[in-house]
Amino acid sequence: MKRIHPIAGFVGFLTILCFWMSTLVVELFGNAAAILAVKTGILWGMIVLVPSLAITGATGFRLAGPVRTGLVRAKQRRMPVIAANGLLILVPCAFVLQRLAAESQFTPMFYALQALELLAGAVNLTLIGLNIRDGLRMTRRRRAMRVGGGTDGPGAAV
């Protein structure tokens, strides 16, 4: 569990980053065929993204146990925003943008949805990045406690 959680979280983060960067690059420098290829690739990439985020959430909830304070609480507060943003904005945008690109409908609606998708993706990258940062801090604290300074470690007073 302790290994699966960070790996799944990192895979999810990198997948979103790949989606976001490829979208930005193709919008700035690509043609219609390249845009369609990226939009189709994003839909296929959800096969990796959705399970990785689900695994991250489930393992994180399990690892947190009954703790609901500090960094754990901060991470838990971000998760509903990340999930809602993904389910209510990013996934629908991905399907609609792919369909519009397939029909060569590069209208103001396409670009408005594209801007919304980029904004929502940036928000999720930021929030997941903060969760990764806090998870690393928690891991460092646990290691420090085990190594010698904490009440649970071998150097603890008896």
Rank of each mutant, 00 (worst) to 15 (best):
Q76T: 06
G41L: 04
V25N: 01
G41Q: 08
A34T: 10
R78F: 08
Q105K: 13
R143T: 15
F110Q: 00
A58H: 03
A157R: 15
E27G: 04
A34Q: 12
R140E: 12
M145Q: 15
L17Q: 09
E27P: 00
A64Q: 02
L130N: 13
G150K: 02
A74T: 10
V48Y: 00
A94D: 03
A122Q: 14
F106L: 05
L28K: 10
R68D: 13
L113T: 08
A120M: 05
M79T: 12
L36R: 05
G70V: 01
N124C: 12
L127C: 05
T40V: 04
S52Y: 02
T56Q: 02
V11C: 01
F19I: 07
A102C: 07
L100H: 00
R73L: 15
A8R: 03
C18D: 11
S104G: 10
A32H: 09
V48K: 06
I82R: 00
N85K: 07
I82N: 02
L88H: 09
L136M: 15
I4L: 12
V48P: 06
D152V: 15
A64N: 02
V48T: 12
A54I: 07
A102E: 13
G70D: 05
G129R: 11
M109K: 11
A37C: 07
I55T: 10
A144I: 13
L116G: 03
M1C: 08
A8K: 01
R78C: 11
F61C: 00
G121S: 15
L125A: 06
I128A: 02
A64S: 15
G86D: 03
A156K: 15
P108K: 15
G70H: 05
L53F: 11
A94K: 03
R62H: 11
T15N: 08
P92D: 03
G45A: 01
T69H: 09
T151Q: 14
A156E: 11
G135L: 04
R68M: 11
D152Q: 14
L130D: 07
Q114W: 01
T107L: 11
A157Y: 15
I7V: 13
A74R: 14
P80E: 08
T139V: 12
R99C: 03
L49M: 06
L116K: 03
Q98I: 05
E103Q: 13
I35Y: 00
T139F: 04
F13M: 00
M1E: 07
I35F: 03
V123G: 08
I42D: 04
N85T: 10
M138C: 09
G149L: 11
I7D: 04
K2G: 13
K2H: 09
V158M: 12
T23N: 13
Y111N: 06
A74C: 04
L36T: 08
K75C: 04
P80D: 07
M109W: 12
G129T: 15
L97K: 01
V25R: 02
N124I: 08
L113W: 07
V48E: 00
P154Y: 11
A156Y: 10
L116E: 09
V48G: 01
N124H: 08
Q98K: 10
A34H: 04
R142F: 12
I47Q: 08
E103M: 14
T15W: 00
Q114K: 09
A101M: 14
F110G: 05
T107N: 09
N85W: 03
A122H: 06
A8S: 05
T56F: 00
V72C: 05
F29V: 09
T59H: 10
G153K: 13
C18P: 00
G12D: 01
L116R: 00
E103Y: 10
